[in-house]
Simulated assay, not measured.
Amino acid sequence: MKSTIIKYGTYGFFVGLIIFIIHLTFGKNLSYGTNAIMGYIAICISLSAVVFGLKHYRDKINYGSLTLRRAIIIGTLISIIVSLGIALADFIYTKFINPDWFDNYYKMMRDAGKEDEIVEMTSFTAGLFMLSLVTVIGFVISLISGVILKRK
């Protein structure tokens, strides 16, 4: 179980890190809505490591058996590792690649008349938010994958 979590978590970590930095760097001139959609696509691609990890564990490690409980545990732990990669990418982007991102975002929100929706963030808190978001999405993917891949 541990080797599966580390192996597929590492795959997802690097996929998330690379895809997220590429999408943020080359998407600088795109709208925030388009960037958000691309971000969710990058998260889903990275979290595909959960599905592959669960399938590998069921077929190669656990002799064709997988319980829902075990799927949720393994999938969530893989997604935590994946979320570290995406959070690191978000931190690197907002701290070093585009340090004006928050100022530009706040200006866009004010211009759109959404001043009441502005939440002050830093690169660190944005990274923590991404860590939490990706982990929750990973949990949901683990749950769905566990139901689909479950065998006793």
Rank of each mutant, 00 (worst) to 15 (best):
Y40V: 07
M38Q: 06
T67V: 07
K95V: 03
A71C: 09
G27R: 09
I80T: 10
L17K: 06
N98W: 07
Y93D: 07
I73P: 01
L77Y: 02
T135Q: 00
I97M: 09
D116E: 14
G27A: 11
G9K: 00
G16H: 04
T135A: 09
D111V: 11
Y106E: 11
M109N: 00
S132M: 10
K28M: 15
Y8W: 12
V51D: 06
K2I: 15
N35M: 15
V51W: 10
K55Q: 09
I81P: 00
H56K: 14
K95P: 02
I73F: 05
Y105V: 06
Y32A: 07
I6E: 04
Y106L: 06
T10F: 14
K28R: 15
G27Y: 09
L84V: 13
E120L: 11
D59I: 11
V119A: 11
F129R: 02
T25P: 08
I118V: 05
I137Y: 07
V15M: 05
M38G: 08
F139H: 01
V15C: 04
K60W: 03
Y32M: 09
F96L: 12
V136Q: 01
G85C: 07
I18R: 07
S79W: 05
W101D: 04
S31F: 15
I43N: 00
G138F: 05
F129C: 02
N35F: 10
Y8L: 03
K107Q: 15
M130F: 14
D103E: 13
G39W: 12
L88E: 07
D116N: 14
Y40P: 00
M130S: 10
W101K: 05
S79D: 07
F91D: 11
A112F: 14
G146F: 01
D100P: 03
W101H: 11
Y63D: 10
I5A: 05
I80N: 03
D116V: 13
Y93T: 10
G39E: 08
F139C: 00
V136R: 00
L143W: 09
F91I: 14
W101Q: 05
T76H: 01
V82A: 08
G75V: 06
V136C: 02
E117Y: 14
Y40H: 08
S83T: 10
F91R: 12
